[in-house]
């Protein structure tokens, strides 16, 4: 079993190539021009961030229910890839926002929630890294993996509510609902392509985790075996 496999990388590469061409061929936005093409990466990245965290949530629940190590590995892998795509979505959004909105950051509820999720799942990964015992790690990570996702709607709703009381943003919003058909098609191809990349990453990460777990448990030394008789002869005579 190879890390990346054979068929999935090819599929992902072909889809990415098609997506790239579609993204370049699609007409530019009437107002934003070519800048709008960032959408073809930004939107899939945001979608995959949420997909990754949703998988972590489901796998954490499954671990608490079944206690199978594979759910823990899936939860960890999906969170790691999810954090990558969250970071990508935020950075691309910022790059896109600066010329369009004139600012790097705006207090849009979606942005605030996404940024908070980024930090929460960084915390999730830090929690995993700091815990040595695999069972303890799986348990704490599973409890937190559930909590981290469950809080997303309430945090989002509260920020939404807060914004609705204040002056709504007077800037252009990305993702105009009256989107051109060819633009929509290009977007869908890219969502598909990046989802394939996501699947490729998560699968590779799970395989790495399996290998890591095997290495940790394979020789299986007994706890006491690492303590051997001290070598006392000749020590003091060397002085």
């Amino acid at each position: 079993m190879t890390l990346f496999g054979r068929r999935l990388p090819i599929i992902a590469a072909v889809l990415l190539a098609v997506g790239l061409v579609a993204g370049l061929v699609a007409p530019p936005d009437r107002i934003q021009g070519n800048l709008q093409r960032l959408m073809y990466v930004h939107v899939p990245a945001a979608w995959l961030a949420f997909l990754g965290f949703a998988i972590t949530f489901g796998a954490s629940l499954a671990w608490l229910w079944r206690r199978k190590p594979r759910y823990d590995r899936l939860a960890a892998s999906a969170a790691e890839v999810g954090v990558f795509f969250t970071g990508l979505a935020i950075v691309l959004g910022s790059v896109w926002g600066k010329p369009v909105w004139g600012v790097w950051w705006t207090w849009d509820p979606r942005l605030v929630t996404t940024a908070l999720m980024f930090f929460v799942y960084l915390g999730y990964l830090a929690l995993r890294r700091a815990t040595l015992d695999p069972l303890v790690r799986a348990r704490r990570a599973a409890v937190f993996g559930v909590l981290a996702f469950v809080q997303v709607p309430i945090v989002h709703m509260s920020v939404l509510w807060w914004r609705s009381l204040h002056q709504p943003p007077t800037v252009l919003k990305p993702g105009d609902p009256t989107i051109d058909h060819s633009m929509l098609a290009a977007l869908l191809v890219n969502v598909l392509a990046f989802t394939a990349v996501f699947a490729l990453f998560v699968r590779a990460r799970v395989r790495l985790a399996v290998a890591q777990d095997e290495e940790d448990t394979l020789p299986g030394p007994l706890a006491g075996d690492v303590v051997t008789a001290p070598r006392l002869e000749g020590v003091s005579r060397d002085e």
């Binding site: 930090f119 929460v120 915390g123 929690l127 700091a130 704490r140």
Partner: peptide
């Protein structure tokens, strides 16, 4: 969640801060 871990006083707040937003 952060019991017995290095940096628990920093890691702990990071884990639960979003729910402090509401």
């Amino acid at each position: 969640l952060a019991q017995g871990l290095d940096g628990r006083t920093t890691l702990g707040p990071v884990l639960v801060l979003p729910l402090a937003v509401p």
